[in-house]
Amino acid sequence: MKKSDSYEEFIKGIWRDNPVFVQVLGMCPMLAVTNSAINAVAMGMATFFVLVGSSFLVSSFRNWIPKQVRISCFIIIIATFVTVADYTLLALVPKVHKELGAFIPLIVANCMILGRQEAFSSRYPVRLAVMDAIGMAGGFLLALFSLGAIREILGDGALFGIKLFGENFEPWVIMILPPGGFLTLGVILLFFNWFKFKKDEFLAEVAEAERGGG
């Protein structure tokens, strides 16, 4: 029973309540740094680290943090993790850090992270909070990666810098420019909604048939 609880918290972030495709949160990094798969993954990993770390701390201290100053405390915790991520990336992968630029410090302002602390971590035990954070951050990472991969494949004919189609590929320049981010995200959201619509329609038909048959 307990195992399935954790699993439930994990899987909801990956798919059913995906922070990007369903909740449409964290759009700023989503659109800004997904012009290549490597940038998207680096951003996703940094966010993953910040979210899981913050959720763990917030959940651990949830009984000590007074309600009146909880938001300030959450922000201090998140900001600390963001700074750590910022310096670590700058020291380890300066090239990627240069590409991501101001968007690493801006993880602080990612509404998904503060939202998880307020809505989940501050109310649930550590195990569930961490599972929830891993699920949500994993879903975010997945979304960033799929956007980054689509944009890099079409915009540069490559994935992770490896050319896929040979020298003669005609790159879709728009895909690595900002409009490409909006276009790709729009098409993916369209697909998600269409899928949901079809599923609901199917479920309604099934319910109808059962009522008719019974």
Binding site: P66, I77, A79
Partner: peptide
């Protein structure tokens, strides 16, 4: 309240 924030700030 002040103590909580101060400690959080210090650790951070």
């Amino acid at each position: 309240l002040i103590l909580t924030l101060a400690i959080a700030g210090l650790i951070s």
